[in-house]
């Protein structure tokens, strides 16, 4: 491929924004915030991806999907780089991504509430009210409770709405 015909990185970002997350297909990989960099090194396109959870089984599927999408757009030389640091955080999910999650029935993460392993607050919460208000994505009620800290995929926790009584997923904060 001649250098003059290489698509610019804005175009690549646009293509990547069309690649859905394999487990939550309503949001794209760029919504999720896991594409850290897109750059040309000579005539090779280098896409840097950071994993969500260390053991997330979707990681290899994500890499395959990126490769398939970019090859479909005519990219011939492609390198996928894994980048661990800085570690991915749910704070990187875009505002559009959060709207899409909510519309899909998954309560988006509340920023700045990631587990920090400081247990004093946790113990206080157990005996009293939660300091975290998770809104039901169906009826909008904030009268909800945690059913389990883990859910159907590595990135979700299970909640239930006390008003509309529907169970729902909440995006786990890390």
């Amino acid at each position: 491929m001649a250098a003059a015909t290489l698509p610019d990185t804005d175009q690549i970002w646009e293509w990547l924004s069309q690649v859905p997350d394999p487990e939550i297909p309503v949001i794209s990989l760029t919504d999720l915030g896991i594409i850290r960099d897109v750059a040309w090194q000579g005539d090779t396109l280098v896409v840097t991806v950071t994993p969500t959870y260390s053991g997330c089984p979707a990681t290899s599927v994500i890499n395959l999907d990126i490769e398939a999408a970019l090859r479909g757009h005519g990219i011939e030389k492609l390198e996928l780089k894994r980048q661990l640091a800085p570690a991915w955080t749910t704070d990187w999910i875009t505002p559009e991504g959060r709207d899409k999650l909510r519309a899909y029935g998954i309560a988006p993460p509340v920023d700045g509430t990631a587990a920090d392993g400081v247990l004093a607050g946790r113990i206080a919460r157990l005996t009293g009210e939660s300091n975290l208000t998770i809104q039901c994505p169906r009826c909008g009620s904030t009268h909800t409770r945690k059913v389990s800290q883990f859910g159907s995929t590595p990135c979700k926790a299970s909640y239930r709405c006390n008003d509309c009584l529907e169970p729902f997923d909440y995006f786990k904060c890390i």
Binding site: L84, A87, T89, A115, G117, R122, I123, Q149, I174
Partner: peptide, 17 residues
């Protein structure tokens, strides 16, 4: 460690709970 620490903080909150 930075990656794992976030996950393990979450584990610790659950197991302590």
């Amino acid at each position: 460690a930075a990656k794992a620490e976030k996950e393990v903080a979450y584990h610790l909150e659950r197991s302590a709970d």
